[in-house]
């Protein structure tokens, strides 16, 4: 039998989704930190493979944008963080263009 938890989001944890719901309730804004941390980690990983900061940032912000939309769909983050990630992605594309165009 699944353990009962003191939470309004779900009565008990039966899988990953309900576990995340529980985490989001006991630690609000946890998934915003997850997104920001993943952005930094992915940027560092991609930076070691790509030959410029703009390429690495564009790739990492794209993954973060997709992940933030999924998190919002599941109700883990607010609307504004999703829209911030979309805007950051658009800014990363602008940086990528400026970085690759001849000055």
């Amino acid at each position: 039998m699944a353990p009962n938890l003191i939470t309004n989001a779900t009565n008990n944890v039966t899988g990953m989704y309900t576990l995340f719901q529980y985490v989001n309730e006991v630690a609000p804004n946890f998934f915003i930190l997850v997104l920001f941390g993943l952005l930094v980690i992915l940027f560092v990983i991609f930076r070691s493979r790509a030959d410029s900061n703009s390429k690495a940032f564009a790739a990492s912000s794209f993954f973060i944008m997709i992940l933030s939309i999924l998190f919002r769909t599941m109700g883990f983050i607010d609307n504004k963080w999703m829209y911030i990630s979309i805007t950051v992605m658009a800014g990363a594309v602008v940086w990528l263009h400026l970085d690759s165009s001849p000055s």
Binding site: M89, G91, V93, V94
Partner: peptide
């Protein structure tokens, strides 16, 4: 940055924001 790049980045910014918004919708 030359003038045409400024025009192009405005278009790119709007296009990527629009695609993101379409995904959300």
């Amino acid at each position: 940055m030359i003038a045409r790049d400024w025009i192009i980045v405005l278009v790119l910014f709007g296009a990527v924001s629009g695609i993101g918004y379409l995904i959300v919708v």
